[in-house]
């Protein structure tokens, strides 16, 4: 198992699991799988940031990664 920090923003925050600051997940978990496991409808996720850099859903998570997920924000 590895540990990651997960942040969910705006409308995604309702899916935030307990222990999101130090979430245990199996080694080799992709962002896609994480989104599924946390129970977020995948179409709601627009932007994925790992350690402050944009990544895609196939990114394999590593120990101590900081993960941020965003919905589309377009208001003015």
């Amino acid at each position: 198992m590895i540990k990651i920090e997960l942040k969910l923003f705006v409308t995604l925050s309702r899916y935030l699991p307990d222990n999101s600051g130090s979430l245990e997940i199996p080694e080799g978990t992709t962002v896609e799988k994480l989104i599924f496991d946390v129970g977020i409808p995948k179409e709601l996720v627009k932007l994925i940031f790992i350690n402050g850099k944009k990544q895609n859903r196939s990114y394999q998570l590593k120990n101590n990664d900081r993960v941020g997920l965003f919905p589309p924000v377009g208001g003015g």
């Binding site: 705006v10 409308t11 709601l44 919905p71 589309p72 924000v73 377009g74 208001g75």
Partner: peptide, 9 residues
């Protein structure tokens, strides 16, 4: 493009 989540928030 779909609307953003601001339509709900």
């Amino acid at each position: 493009q779909p609307k953003g989540v601001e339509t709900r928030t």
